[in-house]
Design a protein around this nucleic acid. Sequence first.
DNA 1: GCCCCCGGTTGATCCAGATCAAGATGCGCT
DNA 2: AGCGCATCTTGATCTGGATCAACCGGGGGC
Lengths: 254, 254
Amino acid sequence: MGDLETSSAHFRDCGDCPIRQRAVCSYSSPRELTLLDAAKSYRTYATGEEIVAEGMPASLVGSVVTGAVALHESLADGRRQMVGLLLPSDFVGRPLRPIAQYAATAASDVKLCLFERGKFERLLQENRSLERRLLEMTLDELDAARHWHMVLGRKTAREKIASFLVLLAVRMAPEAMTRWPNRVALEIPLSREAIGDFLGLTIETVSRNFTGLRKSGVITMTGARNGEVLDMGRLREEAGDDGSDDGLDGILRA
Amino acid sequence: MGDLETSSAHFRDCGDCPIRQRAVCSYSSPRELTLLDAAKSYRTYATGEEIVAEGMPASLVGSVVTGAVALHESLADGRRQMVGLLLPSDFVGRPLRPIAQYAATAASDVKLCLFERGKFERLLQENRSLERRLLEMTLDELDAARHWHMVLGRKTAREKIASFLVLLAVRMAPEAMTRWPNRVALEIPLSREAIGDFLGLTIETVSRNFTGLRKSGVITMTGARNGEVLDMGRLREEAGDDGSDDGLDGILRA
DNA sequence: GCCCCCGGTTGATCCAGATCAAGATGCGCT
DNA sequence: AGCGCATCTTGATCTGGATCAACCGGGGGC
């Protein structure tokens, strides 16, 4: 858990921010950034802590700085499904509507860069490049959400797990991935239960398929939450996507 | 099929447009609308016709005027999954990226209001309320896509079918639904195969569950593609959502 | 009108993943 | 170090939906 924080040393200014290049603020001019800098506040949440409650007025929006945030929807009878996983630079919360349709909870220890929703909406109104970047990110997230629709609708359990690991590998080691290296470190910010919850599988099925991928030599694990992809090409084949680099956009976000 | 067109008489001007109040242009001032009006062109596609090919440069964006458009993603081995269903007033195509990640095909006979993508992007740049409305619609679609993630991940086949019918009933009779009437007409713009494709089910399972809902008296069918919801509350219970009106936003779009 | 064909329904069997049930591993705490 | 609870793994069985296989029905063409 703590190791998810290693890269995030303490900082106060947007200038030092580790997600500056990819977050909603990435198109902002120095002038805009000054406004954002003044309006933002950092907050950390411990694993399991609730950030926004489902169907409740949500007054905060912002960006994931470190860690992972899970979005959940529950059914009347209590069944619960994770419907999104937000990683560093992803946008949290729902601008332009007062009620959050999904609960957001800290899947690991998390640091967020937060804005009061009303204030953020005013900033959106007054800063074209902020609004433009949010539109772009939202379109990307929509493509990604539709990709997961396909994963859940058509893929086998093993393919689902492999797809999930591809997402993690790509998001956690983005620079290293421009030309596929074979080996990529895996740091899994979720419990087996949470992974199952995201992929519509049980904890047992998740576990069995981790074991399967390990025995096939596609990954190694050192402990349940970290390991290494031994062959990225084969992992992508296991995911049912072809081995090419196409369609990575859709894999890059959850 | 033809009956999906009944309400759409021929027209040329945005002023007469049946989706004027809900589409991407709905915030546009008369001045903006003049620009859109000049840039738009209508085009119809026959059932099954391809509108955009997966992974191909796509030069068109626009709105569904009548009929239904299916978005598809395919796997390397040929498995195919519908990842979105676009109904009248929904936005088609992918602004801000040259390559379409998903294939779009006409699920029924369809009429679209189209813009050349480059031109639309210029209009977005120059017209705040157009960009704002697109952002709002994209955020809504994202919420909806996440809702389907939950449907596919956690619901039984019967609940999936019921959820799908709720979507159709609400989208096809939006005015009538503000206070839930019990009975609502159902016009199903998709084949059993396409429904299965959307919900991650086989054609046989879809058929069996239609029969099941019919035998339980929740719906009646007159022919395979139209019928009536006899008890909207029970249909929503069958969908696994509670009977309340909460969370309708998420149901309103596919 | 009649026939053909495509889409839909119904039935019988099978299997991937759920469920039920023990263990194993490991991590924090004293 | 040793205890205790969490999480994870592994095994045995069960089941919802897939698959395989007929059959039905209605709309279009002749």
